[in-house]
Design a protein around this nucleic acid. Sequence first.
DNA 1: CCATGTGAAGTTCTTCACAGCT
DNA 2: AGCTGTGAAGAACTTCACATGG
Lengths: 233, 233
Amino acid sequence: MANSTLESSAEPPITAPAPTAISPAAIPAATISRLPVYMRVLLAMEAEGIATVRSEALAEAANVQAALLRRDLSWFGTYGIRGVGYDVTVLLREIGQHIGAERTLSLILIGAGSLGQALARHLVSSARGFKLVAAVDVDPRIIGTELVGCTITNQANLEATIAATAPEIALIATPADQAQQAADTLVAAGVRSLLNLAPTTLNVGPGVIVRSVDIAQELQILAFHEAHREGGR
Amino acid sequence: MANSTLESSAEPPITAPAPTAISPAAIPAATISRLPVYMRVLLAMEAEGIATVRSEALAEAANVQAALLRRDLSWFGTYGIRGVGYDVTVLLREIGQHIGAERTLSLILIGAGSLGQALARHLVSSARGFKLVAAVDVDPRIIGTELVGCTITNQANLEATIAATAPEIALIATPADQAQQAADTLVAAGVRSLLNLAPTTLNVGPGVIVRSVDIAQELQILAFHEAHREGGR
DNA sequence: CCATGTGAAGTTCTTCACAGCT
DNA sequence: AGCTGTGAAGAACTTCACATGG
């Protein structure tokens, strides 16, 4: 029997995790996945000094239909002004609140190879709201070196590292054959949000959320479309 | 008016590009996005020497429901054996054919900063069926250096580089504010499959396929779920 | 008998179209 | 007069459950 996780990855809409009893009346997964896009567009608009925006303009910048954008926003309340549009700053604050952008989340990196390091550096420099609190690896040549303010420690002591740093989210950047074991250890230690960068699927228990990012798979999807182009160029 | 692209990114199912007239009777986008997962699982099984597999086992390894797996496969024909299961090798060949895995696709990297380089190295070493034919950047300190067999050239000569190397897929790893311009140049030069790694949305014309990978956005989606956990740990 | 392949039902997501507010 | 917010319709996707074939 397959797991009951919200294992994501590109596109697959994924069945909801569990009809979360109370809370904000179950916001659709599809909506949630678009919120970061809206946030980014709104931030860019605020930086440009745009005070007010219509759903059509916001939607175009986010590459969605205007009606979809309006419905997405409607889940959080009614922040628009009819006949006018949305106040950029108000929307940013409201969405940011719902997305939890006010709080800084701590990350742990599992597997500090070249890709893991590049991604970690990229994240702390570009994404606000996240900080790296630990990084582990199995390679003795890497252990002890520095990465954006963290000393890379031995993956053998993963449990202790987690206990000491209490990361909320783990970035799994190990080779594929070690990813599941790393996930198991992380989950056992209490980490319940995993970003899987390894080219494999992860099975985790209920309550744990996994999202997967896999560039090779994205390329294969593009390859599929290339293979099915009718009018060859 | 929003574009008519298959701009992807995590999850959003995306409306089909255009009811492609003929072809294999329009395979659902959701199915296509799962094919690489199946391929990977099947390859692992073949490596383990497994000859035959039931849909239930394959589905569990791929983290989907068995019925969904069977329906996905049914789009390509009927390769299973009732009462038995699927022949791993046969399935691999058939899916591989449809996904275009027999052909090697050529890639061009736009933006050879540390992240772009790490991703390009990662891809050529881990994903079969892709080769890097060109890499460009705007930084004079990077231009002229080597990357997995390619000399990084000046992005100012992008058109000429494309004409000389005829890449089928472009990896856009520029800063966000240069991504749209790079995409425009690529499309104008005939590239019709883009993998966008820059933290921004891209608008392209019809017939061009864009898929986006954005780790910061994935983290924000995890952050949303963290912010909405009821029983705090 | 057993597992596939698939109608039919069910669920989730998107789009339409317009009433209602500013 | 114009744009939001949303009921209702539509489309896409998934799951159920079983007839079918090996």
